[in-house]
Design a protein around this nucleic acid. Sequence first.
DNA 1: CAGCCTTTGAAGTCA
DNA 2: TGACTTCAAAGGCTG
Length: 201
Amino acid sequence: MGLNPNSAGLSCGVKPQAYDWWPAEQQQYLNPTSRGQNNTPQTQSTAADTSVHPLVPLLLYSDRHFPSSSLYSQPISAAAAQQVSAQSGQHTCYHSNSAFSRQPVKKPLNAFMLYMKEMRHKVLQEGQERESAAINRILGRRWHALSHSEQSKYYDLAQKERLLHMQLYPGWSARDNYGKRKRKQSQQISGSTSSWTLNAG
DNA sequence: CAGCCTTTGAAGTCA
DNA sequence: TGACTTCAAAGGCTG
């Protein structure tokens, strides 16, 4: 499945024709098996086309694209993804989910965020740290220790994330959420001494 | 219970 | 255009 238009994840309200706008050079990102390192154009579908990139479930079942309470946000394994695929017809995607549509659209995750999301539980299992701040420090060091090829997996996935986000939320801009936190802060201290208040734009 | 901490990367803002 | 700022995730901790 992956980002194949016929896959379970994007078949949810997204027609295959919707990918026609995608630039030819970006089409590779629709195919989980042909990543950035491989510049060989795939003009014919192969058996490998149907394989699942191990990281794709992180993207497709992100709780930013589907409600946190939704089945779509739960599975992280390819096996679970297949289970969702089988049941996808019974679930409405975010387009028709009025409850979810009221939730603010968040920024797509960057490569490091995707890496953290995948590796956090491993650090937790190791029992070194429990606090997120400490775990993030560890993952930051591990991120730098990764090889370029390892990191490229996450950069590629992050690009898919951005492309999918663009299609799911056309016209959305990070500007929509920009400064919200600081504005909320400044609202709480409005009228009081705010010389330290950061300019939110 | 809202916000901080802590990381990297993407994207927004401003001079 | 470069420098700076904010937000994305996560969850224990703090005031």
